Every structure is written in structure tokens, then in C-alpha cells.
Simulated assay, not measured.
Amino acid sequence: MDLALLRTFVAVHRAGSFTRAATLLGLSQPAVTSQIRTLERQLGRPLFHRRARGVTPTAVGDELAHKAAPHLDALLRITDSERETAGSARTLHVAGPPEFLTLRVLPALAPLVGQGHTLRTALHNDAAETLEGLAAGHHDLVVTTSRPRGALFDAAPLCDEEHVLVAAPYWAALTDPQRLREHGAHALEGVPVVEVHESLPLVSRYWATVFDALPGVAATVVVPDLRAVLECVRAGAGLAVLPRYLCRDALDRGQVVALLEPAVPPLRTWFLVVRSGGLALAHLARAHERLTSAAARW
């Protein structure tokens, strides 16, 4: 059986689409369709159900993918290792939110540059857009708080991010901690809110988890970067909900104050996502391992 046909078949099985698989393989969509039809004729069985949007595998298709994919990945791992031995430079394309990429991901990956790799980043706050880019082959590795579903992606939990309700000392001095614990968000009435979006995504999650309520205020300052939110809070613009890793230094220096330390703080899980089979590539597996090891200390 032609390995090229099997490679195309596994790509379609993982992508769930002839068009998407064609993009990943660097082929035209008609070429992918033709290869799948050839393989189906050779096997005498249909491998996919054609749908209005993409394809789904038949039972025979699922069985073939289960048998073939590990061996194809192993071959890819061998050829990629030979390429590295020959000294071919590899570029790693990473995507995710700017703050987490800047403060967590890139420092962990930086040592790879000394091993002959190059890094390229794409900053996206929209998880759906980032995963679409990964599916289309624009990125090699993505960090996101949205766990993707389906056979196209391999997603591994990376770390949990604790959220903290913070304000500058001026606003903290005007807030009664006891009243805040007893009356919840009502004790914060009159304190301006700084957020990354008009919909108050971080504040709303914190309010729902800690106060069992929704915020009844609009943001006073909206800026789409958590680092800018921190600077606004530090300068006295109001309160905000921020990841602890981002504001830890400001907390330690007393530049911002945690208004509340709930027994069970709100958490958000980060996932490290690659395309299925992508870890057969040595440079991608190395980056994946570096990030998971670094995350154990975060």
C-alpha cells in the first residue's frame, strides 16, 4: 500500500476535512480527494462519510487510522531526526494570549534558540481564532484556556492560573474586609472597575465563583491587555481581577493589595495544544517537554 496515500488518509482522518488536510499537507484539495478515492478503491471499502461540512470516518476508516497512524508518526519521527542530524534549522511557530506568552511561554522556550531553533509568535486573545490557525497549519503549538475537542488536536493540561481581586492601597483602605467577606460584592460599590473587555470576563467569573452573583457595574477602564490593566490598577484607577502570576511582584511590593483571599480561589486551566501526530517532530516534542517541565514550577 502506498505510504503517501496512507499519510493523506491519516491527515484527513485527523482534520475531519479534505480542505483542511490539503492545507496541512501542502496539496490541492482535488489531489487529496483523488488520493482518498484511490485508497478506497484499493481497499474496496469507503473510509469516510461525506458531510455538508467535512467528513466523518466509517468504522473501517477508524480501524485503519488506529492501525496506521502510530507507524506513520514513527516514520516521521525518524525522518525528522535525520533532518536535525543534518543540521537543518527548525522554526517553531507559537500562538496564544500576549500576556501568558510573554511572561510564561517565551522565557521557557528561549533556551531552544541556543540549540539552533528559531521562534515565531502570533499573539491572539481569541481562543477560537488561535485554534483555527493551528488547524490550518499556521501555528505549531498553542496555549489556550479553551480545551479543544476532536481528533485534530492533542491537548494537555499545562497549569492552573489563580485569579486575585486587587486594587491600589488607596481603594483597599476604603474597603472594609469584614464587610466584603459578609456582604460580598455589595461592599465594593463605588469602586471603579478595570477590565480587558466590556463584557467583564474576569470580573464576571470571579463574582460568580466567589460571590455567587453577577457584577452590577460597567467597567470604568477597558484595555485589552492584562499588563495594562495591572498598570492602571497600580496607578489607582480602581479594582481588577488578575492572574496571580502577573500581579505577584506588585503584591509583594505593596503596589496593589489583594482585597479578598477566598478559601477556594477561582482557577483557570491552561492547555498546551498541538495537532495530532505533531509530537513526532523532534523540535516540537522538545518545546512541548520544556513547557510542561517549566509549568511544574509555575
Rank of each mutant, 00 (worst) to 15 (best):
L272Q: 02
D249R: 02
G238C: 14
V274Q: 11
D249E: 15
A263R: 11
T269P: 04
V256N: 03
Q255L: 07
Q255V: 03
V233L: 07
C232F: 13
R244V: 15
Q255K: 09
V257D: 01
D252A: 15
A263T: 11
P243G: 12
A250H: 10
W270D: 05
C247T: 00
L251K: 03
D252I: 04
L251Q: 01
L260P: 02
L267Y: 11
L239D: 00
L259I: 02
D249Y: 00
L260Y: 06
V241K: 12
L246W: 04
L267H: 13
G238E: 05
V233F: 06
L267K: 09
L246H: 04
V273H: 04
R244I: 10
L251A: 06
A263Q: 11
L242R: 03
F271L: 13
A250I: 06
A240Q: 01
P243W: 10
A250W: 07
W270I: 06
V256Q: 03
V273C: 09
V274M: 11
A240L: 10
D252K: 14
R253I: 05
W270G: 09
L251F: 08
R268P: 00
G236I: 07
Y245V: 14
V264G: 08
L246Q: 09
G238A: 14
P266V: 09
Y245A: 13
R244F: 11
L260R: 08
V264H: 14
G238H: 12
V274S: 12
R234L: 06
R234P: 03
G238T: 10
A237S: 15
A235Q: 13
T269W: 02
D252E: 11
A258S: 15
V233S: 07
A263W: 02
R253A: 15
V273N: 06
L239I: 01
G254H: 03
P265Q: 11
A250R: 13
A237K: 05
P243N: 08
P266F: 04
Q255T: 00
T269Q: 06
A237E: 03
V256R: 03
L272Y: 04
V241M: 13
V264K: 13
P262H: 07
L267A: 11
L267C: 10
D249L: 02
L246C: 08
C232D: 08
V264P: 00
T269S: 10
R268I: 08
G236D: 04
Q255E: 15
P266T: 07
L267I: 14
A258L: 04
